[in-house]
Amino acid sequence: MLIDFILLFLLAGVPYYLLLEKIPFIQKDKIFPIAALLVITGMFVSCIFEHKSSMPFIVIAFFASLFSLYKANETNNLHKLTYYILFFNAPLLIMLNTKESILYGASLIIALLGVYLMGRYYVKNYGSANYQSVTGMTLVSPYAGLILTVYFTALALYPPFPNALLFLNGILKSEINTLWYIVVVVIFFGNFLIAVRVMAKTVFGKPNDNVHYIDISPTERVLHLLIVSVLLLLSIIGLQEVIS
């Protein structure tokens, strides 16, 4: 029971970001690292302490997840979006078996890390991670557009990106019940909708004449290449897992 409670908190099952958002000295861009760190801690904890996913906690996490979905659809800020997506996926992290949960969580955090870094690129060049006025990236900043496309396609659960494969692996290997159906369907479509909404707004569309576009620097490109390589590695692992 205690371990379930701890894992519920660590694996982002409760939207504690509401509190963090209210604390003045914690800026929005700090919440994702904190949340990601806690999720990683949760992964370790779930590895160390044997446990079985508890239905009531999944239900709590699911309602919190729906709230995060609402929040994700209300924001145009990439930094906020990273932790909203993380919290949105929490029921799955809690519901899946430990190994599958860790693998899916890892691919989710890696893809969100990419988005988070892209948010920093937005801050640097456009003043904030808010992408509302920064439209049509693919046409004017092709590298940034491509990288965003990769991350959000992964988050939208398109195969062969690791999120999709590990999501499939997770649900194939978990116990099926009514809640399972509800969670899987909501998380699957929710991820898709969030990711596509962002892509439609900032990756595609008509470039904004009021914005001076700057593409990502060579150093940043290398960093993102590393992240994409890790995603590729996870894809291979995901494929192996699905086949096995």
């Binding site: 145009n76 456009y126 003043g127 991670a129 509302q132 006025s133 004449d209 009021n210």
Partner: peptide
């Protein structure tokens, strides 16, 4: 300003 794409990121955040 938002409609014309003239509102920059931080102000869009403030609106949110």
């Amino acid at each position: 300003l938002q409609e014309k794409g003239k509102l920059t990121g931080t102000h869009n955040d403030a609106m949110e």
